[in-house]
Design a binder for these strands. Structure first.
Lengths: 141, 141
DNA sequence: CCATTCACTTGTGAAACGCAAGTGAAATGG
DNA sequence: CCATTTCACTTGCGTTTCACAAGTGAATGG
């Protein structure tokens, strides 16, 4: 399998991070789960970047294997699954926020995203708490 | 060419960041330049992860095209080049630091790296200033 | 039932990667 | 000088990963 990561296998924490989420798609999947609260395969497929179905399946497996997300059957619909963020996945929020801040400094944002950026700049701890609360309020069944 | 990035081409700042440095090698090159002060092709090749020469050449071109680094001839040795960080490249420090913090929370670090982590946790602004000062003290010729 | 939905899997061609070897210009040694 | 070494790459080539399209099987809805 080994998707999203031939391992660099050194002790470097930066390399370790890249082994876990350092490809073109993994962080976008996490972005959709963290920022947009997506929990289903079908929702994640609709990402505006247009991820391919096999790539999405690979990344979800990888993220589950790495312990950043969990997968359970939807009790309301047994052909469906629900994906939820673990603490390890949620703790990537600061990384995503710093990427947003970096991008914002070097290319223009839409109005909606400017609001998000402002929130990150002014109260990132609060935003992190809010997202954690949202997850805690909707635990996977 | 288009190395390190088939562009996602949406307005999302996370996607934009990934287009710029979201592959397995780009951020490691920047890590070596930022954290270890490397400025030469030969030094960068010695990264413990073992980057291939063609990949390194591609990434350096890409980083220069994106404006994260600059390249000049070494006046002391005209067959040699020097690579330096631009403001845009240096401003990725917080992203790298957050990746280090995330990794440190989820896998063990060596003693040397624990010291770096401590520095990041206790005085990241000071560390950032220090690295900027180091670059400013050694401007590319 | 029969069609549709959902979460994938499979197949295939194109692109990217990893390794080894080679190139050309500049410096170095004798 | 001129051969050798250094430096920063480039080229070739086999392997892996990717993107796109199509297909599968179980579960639900009408």
């Amino acid at each position: 399998m080994k998707t999203a990561g031939k391992t660099h296998g050194t002790g470097c924490p930066v390399a370790h991070g890249l082994d876990t989420f350092g490809d073109r798609w993994t962080l976008l999947v996490l972005r959709d789960m963290i920022l947009h609260g997506k929990r289903r395969y079908g929702e994640l497929l609709e990402a505006e970047e247009g991820i391919a179905t096999n790539i999405l399946a690979d990344r979800l497996k990888h993220l589950e294997a790495e312990g950043l997300i969990t997968r359970v059957r939807d009790p309301q619909n047994r052909r469906s699954y629900l994906y939820g963020l673990t603490e390890k996945g949620l703790s990537l929020m600061p990384v995503i926020f710093e990427i947003i801040k970096w991008s914002a400094a070097h290319f223009p944002l839409t109005a909606t995203r400017k609001r998000l950026l402002q929130r990150i700049n002014e109260d990132s701890a609060g935003l992190i708490r809010e997202i954690r609360a949202r997850e805690a309020a909707n635990p996977l069944p």
